[in-house]
Nucleic acid binder design. Structure first.
Lengths: 208, 208
DNA sequence: CAATCTACTGTACATTCGTACAGCACGGTG
DNA sequence: CACCGTGCTGTACGAATGTACAGTAGATTG
């Protein structure tokens, strides 16, 4: 479980079979969903046999877990690359930027996240929980350094970070699909940008 | 294929077996996904045997198709109940409200839609296309009566309608999940409201 | 009554899936 | 050399799943 295998050049050929399996699983899980991708497909994509997947991960569920831990790692690494200097807004902005760049560079992560978030799934050891914990750590660190407000509850700040980051990414494919349905406008005009905003609910009963 | 079976009281007992199957399928598809629900589960929920499902729908894929057509029907009926009088904003608002009420009354539709949106599912007349066509018809009707602007492309207006309606519904469970992770704040404060907005993209390269 | 159509049941079958397992090559260590 | 751990292959198997099909009861029609 030492996971020494993270070189800086993730060229598919050079990777350990274990890493190749994990990458293939991420790609396929993102594309077809976890339940929609047989282990045999992962094996084929990774250039190994099914037996090896079992040998390394034991269970499909464990493979999924490894994929999710890898995703959390990518978030943590992206945050770590961002400079932690300046005002609270500076730091938060730099981290937002770093995470956005990482997500833009690996669409499979976005696709997997979209499925993981939209599927209630088995609710245990969830990716959402892990990412929330990561974001909470982040917010907690900023607070301890006096760079984040202590007024609003921490859950709300985490929520803002995650929803704003992920909301747009999740909704964009739906928007693109709809735009595609009316093809004539896709050439001249750029697709509209989706803005996700959070608002403190004043009254829960009125106006849906 | 005459589908006489839509009484005004959808009490489960009174429905045709065919309708009961369709409803059970919608519920289970929404809850566990199409691939995640065996036909045997649908049969059990509907109180029939698997053979009858095959007898009525032929194929699981055809059953899914029937479920989706039913969903489109619900949208169309909701829109039809809204008063079509007053200014364009009035009409559009009334229809938005009617659809929102219908979605609030049947969460299974929302859940199914959430899943349907993220599964491209093979291009064919899928649910997003059908709903887009419905929304386009609606916008077209308003335009013909001079109640909707003819300036912006029709795809954009459809996009606004659908994204604003569905975006909030899709993101809300994610928000609730995150709030739940930090349980202490869920008691006193109501969960924040998610606002989805569309903005014409001025420059695609800057920021994010 | 005979014939037929329809809603419906229960079984059977081929396929696909996750997983278990026996075995092979090979490199390091006593 | 013998031993063993490790990465890896290929086969096999039980469980689950979609679908085909034969058959039954009851209402309708000639």
């Amino acid at each position: 479980m030492s996971e020494r295998e993270r070189a800086q050049s993730p060229r598919t050929e050079d990777l350990t079979a274990r890493a190749r399996i994990r990458h293939a699983a991420l790609d396929l899980f993102a594309e077809r969903g976890v339940d929609g991708t047989p282990m045999r497909a992962v094996a084929a994509r990774a250039g190994v046999t099914v037996g090896l997947i079992v040998h390394h991960f034991g269970t499909k569920e464990a493979l999924r877990e490894a994929v999710e831990l890898d995703i959390v790692d990518r978030f943590a690494e992206a945050i770590a690359t961002a400079p932690a200097e300046g005002s609270g807004t500076d730091v938060a902005g730099a981290r937002d930027h770093a995470v956005a760049a990482m997500l833009a560079a690996s669409p499979a992560v976005v696709d997997y996240l979209r499925r993981a978030v939209l599927d209630p799934h088995g609710e245990r050891g969830d990716l959402v929980s892990k990412l929330s914990a990561l974001a909470a750590d982040q917010v907690g660190g900023l607070r301890r350094r006096g760079l984040a407000s202590q007024r609003s509850p921490i859950g709300e700040q985490v929520l803002t970070i995650m929803i704003r980051q992920l909301g747009q990414l999740f909704l964009q494919p739906l928007a693109d699909r709809i735009i595609d349905e009316f093809g004539q406008s896709s050439d001249d005009a750029p697709s509209p940008l989706i803005i996700v905003r959070l608002e403190n609910r004043i009254d829960t009963s009125t106006s849906q």
